[in-house]
């Protein structure tokens, strides 16, 4: 491109930025209302702290959950369609290397990983693909427990209603585990959070 060396270049396309933040809002609502729904009949020996849940009580939480699911699904579909059609996935996610991802993680833990703005490193590639898959599993298992009669083939494929509830829980757990690392890095690595809003990397110095 003809931009001067001091002109910041777009590293996050507008479509990716918009769907990222819409998704962030949808996931936030889905997880916190989901915790409240979980509390109505916990499958494991604990409950989520009430103050970290959304909806006030079960009906409120369900209303949020069944409203935000449309946002999550439609926005996610738009993101996947864009990623596939525009070449964004091909350019940003390929090649994938599990070995490379481990190497990057160890480098990062020793403070040696150089973050190149605008380019996903091997660990980012693997974790972004993993979290996209986790969201897809969450949506499918959510449909399976929402409609165990109308979508009984899907429910059966997940091992039945009770098994699908657990799949739904672990998909959530995977997403939350990703978020802990993702948000932790986003706020601690200098300069990258702003780029997710503006799309621009700081000019190299």
């Amino acid at each position: 491109m003809v931009g001067g060396a001091d002109k910041p270049k777009t590293i996050h396309p507008l479509f990716v930025r918009v769907t990222h933040w819409v998704n962030a809002f949808a996931i936030f609502v889905m997880v916190l209302s989901g915790w409240r729904i979980y509390n109505a009949s916990p499958i494991f020996g604990f409950e989520f702290p009430k103050d970290f849940t959304l909806g006030g009580w079960l009906a409120g939480a369900l209303a949020w959950h069944f409203a935000a699911m449309w946002l999550l699904a439609l926005n996610g579909f738009a993101y996947l369609a864009y990623g596939l059609v525009s070449g964004h996935f091909r350019r940003s996610f390929l090649p994938i290397s599990l070995r490379g991802a481990f190497d990057d993680v160890f480098l990062a833990m020793r403070g040696l990983l150089h973050h190149a703005p605008g380019r996903y490193n091997a660990a980012q590639r693997v974790s972004y693909i993993a979290v996209i898959l986790a969201v897809i599993v969450a949506i499918l298992s959510g449909l399976a427990i929402w409609k165990p009669v109308q979508l009984q083939t899907l429910t059966a494929a997940l091992g039945g209603y009770e098994a699908a509830r657990r799949v739904h829980f672990f998909a959530m757990a995977a997403i939350v585990a990703f978020l802990v690392v993702h948000i932790g890095l986003a706020v601690s690595v200098k300069g990258i959070l702003a780029a997710m809003f503006t799309g621009r990397a700081e000019a190299p110095r």
């Binding site: 209302s33 959304l54 909806g55 006030g56 009580w57 009906a59 409120g60 939480a61 209303a63 949020w64």
Partner: peptide, 10 residues
């Protein structure tokens, strides 16, 4: 009332 309190708090 559910809508007055439950949802609004959320």
């Amino acid at each position: 009332l559910f809508l007055k309190q439950g949802l609004s708090l959320g």
